[in-house]
Nucleic acid binder design. Sequence first.
DNA 1: TTGTAAGCGTTATCAA
DNA 2: TTGATAACGCTTACAA
Lengths: 352, 352
Amino acid sequence: MDKQIDQSTTNPQASRKSTGLRQVAAVAGVSTATVSRVLNNPESVSEGLRTRVLMVIDQLGWVPNAAARALSSNRTGAIGAIFPALGVGDFARAIDAMQDALAARNYLLLLARSRYDAALELVQARKLVERGVDGLILVGSTRSQDYEQFLRRLSIPYINSFVFDADSAIPCVGPDNARAMAEMVDYLVSLGHRRFGMIAQTNRNNDRAAARRDGVRDALARYGLAIPPQAMVEGEWSIAEGRKLLRQVLATSPRPTAIICGNALLAIGAVLEAAEMHIVLPRDLSIVGYDDTELMSELPQPITTVRVASDRVGKLAADLIVDMLEGQTSVSGARIPSEIVVRSTTGPAPQD
Amino acid sequence: MDKQIDQSTTNPQASRKSTGLRQVAAVAGVSTATVSRVLNNPESVSEGLRTRVLMVIDQLGWVPNAAARALSSNRTGAIGAIFPALGVGDFARAIDAMQDALAARNYLLLLARSRYDAALELVQARKLVERGVDGLILVGSTRSQDYEQFLRRLSIPYINSFVFDADSAIPCVGPDNARAMAEMVDYLVSLGHRRFGMIAQTNRNNDRAAARRDGVRDALARYGLAIPPQAMVEGEWSIAEGRKLLRQVLATSPRPTAIICGNALLAIGAVLEAAEMHIVLPRDLSIVGYDDTELMSELPQPITTVRVASDRVGKLAADLIVDMLEGQTSVSGARIPSEIVVRSTTGPAPQD
DNA sequence: TTGTAAGCGTTATCAA
DNA sequence: TTGATAACGCTTACAA
């Protein structure tokens, strides 16, 4: 009796440890090294042993312990990404694509959110590094000194996304925000517009928004034009703000004939508010946005906007960082092209 | 000279290993156990040593290695969550709140996406468990046999979110989907509606959508009413589908006077399409949605809908799973209340 | 309150 | 191709 009861506890093989690589090795009658090789370097094991080990693994239902693996190999197979927001337009699409691309190459995506807060972003980066991510995907390219220093000391690769700078020392994957906006300005000027307003996305810790604003400013300057300070306002990311800010911009005199919005929701808000003010687009006013979400084309008045293939940003960023880790020779960034999608909110400038 | 130059490389202390807990201990003149305690159980260390150790940690810029920690303690401090989609309405809000709540309690959120695919969800769950998550937050409560078995064998806790079932053996945090819809039906019936149509979200691997549909059906049955098969259609999650399906439902005869949509985008599409068909809401037709995104109230015609505090779902789910891990006594689920938000798309049923 | 030292479950080096 | 065995960087009995 006693013996039977105690068996599971006293039997050294059974009791010592739950199923682990050691147990697999014991049952298969091979060394632990061989089991490990079957997983990480199957070609280096003879076929006979390989199939035998795989059978035992399956039979025992063994699942390797990621922590032990990470500790021993100094790699986790996880990539960290820090986004200002996760559920928002282009980021959401990029994240989906990124996750798929990483999964396809057997990496896990660890997501963090910085809320457009520089200090929080550094905290998040630290946490991800603690977790042992093998690489880091960041958004933008402008950072604090502390942050720069932290990154430089890192022994893991990282890249910038949603920006593109050919001269950057670290790889970038994204659109050229300034250029995209410059193209939009070219288009509007070609329609005869000379008086502009802008409902920009706030610049706070957002170099993409800043680049878009600069792109507009510089492009206008090339035509000898400028946006008067009162007609240049900023908001975050909401329809309500777009509505409010449109009224603000239209209150300036002389009234702009074209208004450039810094993101999709601001543009939607502006267009909806214009309708409520009985302003007819594009007869009385042209409005454009940035980012081409489903809403931009499905609302009663489809909105002219800049389209960036965010899913390509995500996929390429993921592939790039993995390439860097796996020692590909040619790892450089990529400029994701942007295009102007002309819809019904833009037309010739009204005659004075 | 030589000595100075070589110091950093030959000094055994400096060269042997990069900064680790051992080095911190050496520099602070304490044992490794004390350093560990300072991090994990600060009260058990005298104040003098504690501050000394903390200074050294800061000075050396030491970052603990999560893998080693996990291996040694058998806890990772990570919670896994699997959502059908990440960037969509209520899930996006819940994820944000979840992440904040977990961070506040020093846990990391590991996100995975199942795309409403049952097989993929099980794969994701396996991966998260391999990674060593301490707990799992799932969406819904209906799963395949394999999946159920996998979860039962797990030694870590898990919970269901976005559903509520008081009788469930495992904790649920979410709204009562059926009840929310039943309340909507009560409201519409009280307005005199008797002929209903439904643009449901597809049921495929989505027990929330199924519950909402059942909720509508059962509530109508209590009034002796039913939706004819042709007036019951389903779509995924897009404005375009909402538009198309509205036409389909309105083509049935007799024409419904009230149409219930299974999610926000379907409702928005239906309302926009109605406007294009010159159908005046709510005079000619009432339309309601589910989920209260910003768009539901900001579009030209604000839409009557069900509001669920998704951020509370996220926060409570996070707190609940951590409570379970930290051995709180009373861990039970929570029903998150829902409410009907009446806007301009609903009114008395038109007279025949 | 503090220290000693034995793991935790893998990988990877070296020999065979 | 395979096997022994020493790390990997922490946590945690147990002892002092």
